[in-house]
Design a binder for these strands. Structure first.
Lengths: 199, 199, 199, 199
DNA sequence: TATGAATGAGAGTTCATTCAT
DNA sequence: AATGAATGAACTCTCATTCAT
């Protein structure tokens, strides 16, 4: 019935942010289904009622907290890449890209898995975050264009590159396979991307 | 605390299998947290009590059903690849690999995501399934060796190849990005793998 | 998801009846909205879970308990009227009808008001209970026919008669107006009905 | 504990009226328990705080809004009846009475039912509104006396007449029984009242 | 051994009321 | 005087698990 509040005053905005932060932390730590709204409220230092005046339901907290997080780290990465010297050769650039990505996303592994989970349960969220990723891919493609990468099918190549880099992150942070040498793997991925983009 | 039974009689084994099958179907369809034990029992045609005499808890049903499923489809894929004619060129072989994988795993998207979720919550399960995957990678590597692929770092290359192929499956079955052309993507992945293994 | 249980065994049927009885008592005593499911369960001596395995929700308990109650007292009244001597004159018959009704329904005042409340909130329940009342009116009409009442528009006349009698009950049990003489009122109602049915 | 304010200034009085009006509209539309104070405040264009400075609680808003409404429509009806030509015959007068009542009260069905509910919960309110009705009955009786109705037990007859007319309203606005012909019913009620008052 | 009724803690959510600003 | 954000107890309902039969 009652719509959720859109806070404009400083204190309200801060409170909303606290809830988002609390939600994000707990979802990452314990998973979406094992985190309950009472905990989020307590962790955020607000009442359960307040929580429901800022967000329609638990799900919206998840979406918003995650959206913010992805926004923040993808912005950070894009900024890093944008500020690299122009004359850097492609191989070094890709190396920086890989390292930057892994550093920034390393702490988000739980969050990324949780996101996948909720995405599977809900088509709307699927679209929401797939759009977000599209934007990210486009931004990466644009950066590559400024570096005189002119090959065809660039969007698809960026997509494949991102998958490869993310698999490195996964390997590093959660799902480690015995017998895999991470440095070799990283080098493989780098060569792979380099070849694709040099075509 | 009654231990779970290890059934030896035929009827018991059948019952156990029914539960595993029911669990797998429902977990895939609705997700782990949205499937309840009563449903599993009903779908399997057993009582809830029986369910708890075969499995310690809901989680064990998940693990076992998933393990069986992965075993079954990875065996099927390996068998397909093994039975391909010896003289097939590498490019065609990779094409078959990709197609076979996507066909076999297409229906498992929900299951694979659910698996990720449980893996994040539990280190032991993480190891369990990472071992399973290692075995799979090794088998793929062995098949490649019989096809006279002799490049270095084969294990890492197989791993990267599998990641790429699985990202294709994901793109096809759940997380579709606007603007991505699937055929181009598939070709990219194929060329990528081909180049890696030809080094 | 899970359907409500339809109990066939004796103990289950008894438990279901206990819930219905508990619901009815509490709804009458405290009103629908001031009675909570935990109370009903406790009063009935069952767990909240059991309550929800027998009934879809609180509302269904209300409907069923009320339906049973109305059924029981209307049956009792009809039986009373049916067993009156054949040769009784119409005036005396109406007198018995009025007295019987008031006696039987006197204790149901709270319940009847609660019923009205829920009926207003829900069209389906409205129909359910209006059908029940229709049946009751028809039964009364049939009894009158056996007493050689042959006037036209009998159904409408029965309806009006029932309204009048129920207003007497209300006057007696809950909403007493100063200055109204109940005996005179009762006599008025009686004469009114007598005239209608004698046309 | 701050007492509720008795407003004397024009703006305050207007605000109070807005709340009463908002409460009445919403209680009628959605029922007492499904209307919340935030909605009333919003609909009235005041803050929740203001609402609580004019009224002790939600219940008082209900009582006051209802009292005003009943006052207003009963006054309107009495005025209509008073302004009918003197020489009108009784039958026509009763017809006008019935039509006037139904028109005026048709929209109040939800409100009337809600009133019953609160009445059951509270004896003081019971008396309050029974007094209000008594006044109304007396006024009707007085009007009839000016039309040379001189029969005995007039008060009781008026009461019975009012019940009958209200049952028509109910039949029309909420609780429709299949098989009942409304026009026939209306005629029955009219004849009934006519006979009573002609004695 | 097998059943499925029973449990009851715990989930998400609402809302009458208060009170700092 | 007026606001509306904040409170938190209370609500309905779910479900993994147990255990009497």
């Amino acid at each position: 019935m009652a719509k959720t509040r859109v806070p404009t005053q400083k204190r309200s905005i801060e409170k909303r942010e606290k809830i988002v932060k609390a939600g994000f932390d707990l979802f990452c730590e314990k998973g979406y289904y094992k985190t309950n709204t009472a905990e989020i409220a307590k962790y955020a230092g607000v009442s359960t009622g307040a929580l429901y005046s800022y967000f329609e339901d638990k799900r919206q907290i998840f979406i918003e907290s995650f959206h913010q997080h992805l926004d923040a780290i993808s912005s950070a990465l894009l900024q890093q890449l944008n500020s690299l010297p122009e004359q850097l050769d492609l191989s070094t650039f890709i190396g920086k890209w890989i390292e930057g990505y892994i550093d920034l996303y390393a702490k988000s592994n739980h969050a990324l898995v949780q996101l996948r989970l909720v995405i599977v349960d809900d088509e709307e969220i699927n679209h929401h975050f797939s759009d977000l990723e599209n934007t990210y891919f486009s931004n990466i493609a644009d950066i590559l264009k400024t570096r005189e990468i002119t090959c065809g099918d660039l969007f698809e190549k960026v997509y494949v590159s991102c998958i490869l880099i993310d698999s490195l992150r996964q390997e590093k942070t959660s799902f480690s396979h015995n017998g895999l040498n991470f440095e070799i793997l990283q080098e493989q991925v780098k060569q792979n991307i380099l070849k694709m983009l040099s075509d």
